[in-house]
């Protein structure tokens, strides 16, 4: 075993691409572009605004197979002040789609928590479309670690 540190890091990067997250490694750029396209479709020509929406995700995920994420949107959830839907995207997965959530007045609060798969370190994006057509976005980078032990 005559690896130097640089070679070892190279191997570690290779392992990242094959990290056992249930996804094959596909070209990352394509997925990011795909995510961008989905965002634009969802926004329907409106500008992506910041604020009102909060995406909560760990800065470092202990395992990419099960990453807890929460999204909440500030809204009275009655009358015209309603969140219609929230889309969750992952820029670096083979396909950016994660889930689309739809809320109603009976939701009371526009908030959802779930667990998702991340093939590697990447941005997770949450975007909300309000009843008046305005669109809000939040983005978090989640670092997906490669454990020392495959177990």
């Amino acid at each position: 075993m005559n690896l130097n540190r640089r070679q070892a890091l190279g191997l570690a990067t290779g392992a990242a691409a094959f990290a056992a997250t249930g996804f094959r490694a596909l070209p990352a750029m394509a997925a990011a572009e795909d995510a961008e396209k989905k965002l634009m479709e969802f926004a329907g020509g409106k500008a992506l605004e910041t604020g009102r929406i909060t995406l909560t995700a760990p800065e470092i995920a202990e395992n990419g197979n099960t990453v807890p994420v929460s999204v909440s949107v500030e809204s009275a959830m009655e009358g015209d002040d309603m969140v219609e839907s929230v889309m969750l995207l992952a820029e670096g997965n083979p396909s950016p789609d994660v889930a689309t959530f739809r809320f109603t007045a009976l939701s009371g609060v526009a908030a959802v928590t779930t667990r998702m798969r991340l093939a590697k370190t990447q941005n997770v994006i949450a975007v909300a479309r309000m009843k008046d057509g305005s669109v809000y976005m939040d983005k978090k980078q989640v670092k997906v670690t490669i454990g020392g032990c495959g177990g």
Binding site: S95, D97, A99, R102, L106, S107, T113, T114
Partner: peptide, 28 residues
Amino acid sequence: FNGEPVFECELDPAISANPYLEFSAKVP
């Protein structure tokens, strides 16, 4: 709730095994 929609979603393969969903509901 009593036949009226409260919350719904479409899920993709990026949702983890044993899907967990936590959300809110207003109870009239």
